[in-house]
Design a protein around this nucleic acid. Structure first.
Lengths: 344, 344
DNA sequence: TGACACTTTGCAATCGATTGCAATAGAATG
DNA sequence: CATTCTATTGCAATCGATTGCAAAGTGTCA
């Protein structure tokens, strides 16, 4: 339909006013259900508006009202490594945020370019147009987020509580998550447990901290040679894991920082003829839907993603209302979802 | 940061003009790199703008220019069944669309409420604010999409070529996808092949059509009792599959309409002591990242999602430019990604 | 009938950018 | 020096809604 069909579109407020025999002011009030307008007049206007498919110009409205009711959501995933979005965590989070924003009468704009500096984001059209921004992840730009928090529009970040932080965060307790996973393996009788994940990333560093805490608490001294950082890309990841497994024959458990990684680890183990979980037990992180559908079922740390999205939106709404808002780290509950199978 | 730090924000164009000793008109021209403005003047204005973190009011700009540069993307997944977004297909598609929109100088607004009528969507703020809408999936609202296509703003839909269609579509060839999967199983020696998927959904109906085509071509008459529609929810799905497997002992292959479903099917088969793929071979659809990481590797029909997103954006840009635009069904290439294991 | 209260409507300014046209300055030309 | 041309810049209208204030309409009561 390259050409608009005449008569079905482009009814503007003036035409609507003319048809109803009133002024634009009255039409505006009627459509906003103002108590100043007579009920019969309102009904007539609403009826005409619907009949003629009147679509109000939201841009003009936003200009006048000095807001856009739009929140920008920035996906801070590793763009270099996984240029195509493959981590379902982001979709679940975005889904939760968009739903909760809708409940608050807001819409969502998505931003997917890698943000490396505050200035760059300030210049982006999405920033110019939104009322505030929610970052899913901190990437490596903690300092830039600090700057951004000082400018015009409020920001809220899903991430970890880094030192010297000026922006508001929502996050799950990654230390506890790491502890839960490790404790689970310890309770299955594991003694020599590896950790798979990139500890340069703030959230994963905390999970690793939880991992070492749990080990020490069990009287086991963490061995830094058991920490491995497989890349995102599958082929590379699996060859690195294969290599690791050949050089570290003694391990009997692996704490993985994601379900995707856990799936690769399990697959590599099985290829090496190692039985999972009876010889080596594995935990993941994120509770992917599909993890429960595979065999053996993936044991995983489940974050309350929906609750996290809700908190992000709640904090954002607080900031928009000019309130003082606190961080929210514990509000998001963590549980371990156990495999149906246990280490024999 | 409930309070904005003074001096770091709210610089408006007038103040910038005053500092530069020019009028607002010149500032506007300078920031838009108009050739009418002296280069030295431009540089001074740009420098001041950056120094004072000037953020232009995009809403005012949009109002004046009569466009928003925003495209609304509507996720038409089964909200009743999977209220939480769990299908990674959507994320990959949204990711591709947002990236290609960015290349075309556009931003993306996400819409996630179930759309059941054209009127409802016309009244949504996202519609009032966007330049056009992209629907990911047709849901059950083919007729409503027809209406929508006749109104103010262009729409493009990811979906199937339904009869009596007035809107532009982009899609992969689902009939061929169904054929590919079925042919793969036939080539593995399967004779009695089931189909798992909801054939009320247009795209899945076409995959089912490809399935029957392939069977007939191999001289096998399709048996409608071998079509099953497991629900989205895992527990319910698996009990229905279990039940099916007990009543249909003769099958040796299953064509699944999604990888998620295939994972459940494999899991159920294994629970029944049936070896996959040697006794019963299974194919999925979507090529989920994690499918390649599990054991046995999932054989699946891989759609070129990124290419699909690119086409959606291309068609939308064409419509926005007032061009006549054709549907695009074959542009998206389909391949079967085989399991590392084969039916013995 | 006139005064007053209350309901309903319209007028016109406003939000912040863009841009056609007019105006100015300075250079080039006759 | 007067004139024409070009390069910059400013003035002011414009986009389409909202809203304070004024005004018109309706009803009540003395």
């Amino acid at each position: 339909m390259p050409q608009k069909k005449p008569g079905q579109s482009n009814i503007d407020m003036q035409q609507l006013a003319d048809m109803a025999g009133v002024s634009r002011a009255t039409v505006s009030r009627a459509l906003n259900d103002s108590p100043l307008v007579n009920e019969r007049t309102k009904d007539k206007i609403r009826e005409l508006a619907e009949k003629h498919h009147f679509v109000m110009n939201e841009t003009a409205r936003n200009l006048r009202l000095q807001r856009s009711n739009m929140i920008c959501v920035v996906l801070m995933h590793d763009v270099e490594l996984s240029h195509h979005l493959s981590d379902p965590f982001f979709l679940r989070m975005v889904g939760s945020v968009v739903d909760h924003l809708a409940e608050s009468g807001h819409d969502l704009m998505l931003y997917h370019k890698p943000v490396t500096s505050a200035a760059e984001f300030l210049a982006a059209r999405v920033y110019r147009q939104c009322d505030g921004a929610i970052f899913i992840g901190q990437g490596m730009i903690h300092e830039e987020l600090n700057k951004l928090a000082g400018y015009q529009k409020p920001i809220v970040v899903w991430g970890a509580d880094l030192p010297g932080r000026d922006y508001r965060i929502v996050g799950s307790d990654n230390v506890m998550g790491g502890e839960l996973a490790t404790q689970h393996l310890l309770s299955q009788g594991c003694k020599r447990i590896a950790f798979f994940g990139d500890i340069r990333k703030p959230e994963l560093a905390l999970r690793h901290e939880g991992y070492t805490n749990a080990l020490r608490h069990a009287g086991i001294e963490p061995d830094s040679s058991l920490q491995l950082d497989p890349p995102m890309e599958r082929g590379a990841a699996e060859s690195i894991i294969d290599n690791f497994l050949e050089n570290k024959p003694g391990i009997d458990g692996i704490v993985c920082s994601s379900d995707m990684l856990a799936a690769s680890a399990i697959s590599c183990l099985q290829r090496h003829g190692i039985s999972v979980p009876s010889q080596v037990a594995v935990t993941g992180y994120d509770d992917l839907e599909i993890g429960a559908r595979i065999n053996p079922t993936l044991t995983t740390v489940s974050q309350d993603v929906s609750g996290g999205g809700k908190q992000l939106v709640k904090k954002m709404m607080g900031l928009l209302a000019g309130k003082k808002v606190r961080d929210s780290i514990r509000d998001t509950s963590l549980v371990i979802r156990e495999s149906s199978l246990r280490k024999g």
